[in-house]
Design a protein around this nucleic acid. Sequence first.
DNA 1: CTGAATCCGGTCTGATACTG
DNA 2: CAGTATCAGACCGGATTCAG
Lengths: 116, 116
Amino acid sequence: MDPQGVPYTPETAAIDVEKALKMLEGRWKLLILFQLFDGGVRRFSELERAIPAVTQKMLAQQLRQLEKDGIVLRRVYPEIPPKVEYSLTRWGQSLCPALDALLTWAGKRPDGGHQT
Amino acid sequence: MDPQGVPYTPETAAIDVEKALKMLEGRWKLLILFQLFDGGVRRFSELERAIPAVTQKMLAQQLRQLEKDGIVLRRVYPEIPPKVEYSLTRWGQSLCPALDALLTWAGKRPDGGHQT
DNA sequence: CTGAATCCGGTCTGATACTG
DNA sequence: CAGTATCAGACCGGATTCAG
């Protein structure tokens, strides 16, 4: 990465960050990632159950985007009945520290005291 | 919040996570947070310059949401010309590890190799 | 300088129904 | 089981204009 001709400036960095963040945008993506985060391999229906509020359409759509972005791996077993498993790609796993930090933060509640 | 009668189950945790994530949703919020992240105190116009693609409307809107959620602190100086500074609240600062991890991840590029 | 208000088109989401 | 198709509405974001 980073071909030697390309200078690394704050501007190009900002663009990279923006593109990377875009991959995580979407109402359900982080929730999906949290399911896969623990090294988990989950089937479509397992994800549906784990995230009750999501619809089939949105789940499928966001999974496909994550797959296209190389974050999630989709493995299809040509069986009857169909079986599809989702997991993190190697690159997706590089997200784990961030996912972990996010989860930690989300677990904290604001103390309700005066903010400074 | 969190009255003592509320049991802590995976389900309620999921709800918390969902609410917390919702606070970060929005095309520009993380980008704004990254500007404030380094302990920075930034004026409105500084944020505008730092995030060229954002419009005044969206910047103001997302800042107000972050303020309402207790993540960002808005300090108004009653001067002419007006001066408004934004910074992270104490709770907002608890996001820093996550922000840092995200930034680290965003800086990595996928290696383009076969994903596993 | 720091915003608020309005208009408007595009995108995203959700409900529902259908398929291999 | 694991999706796709379709439609309608909510929501988002941008341009422009106005205000303290």
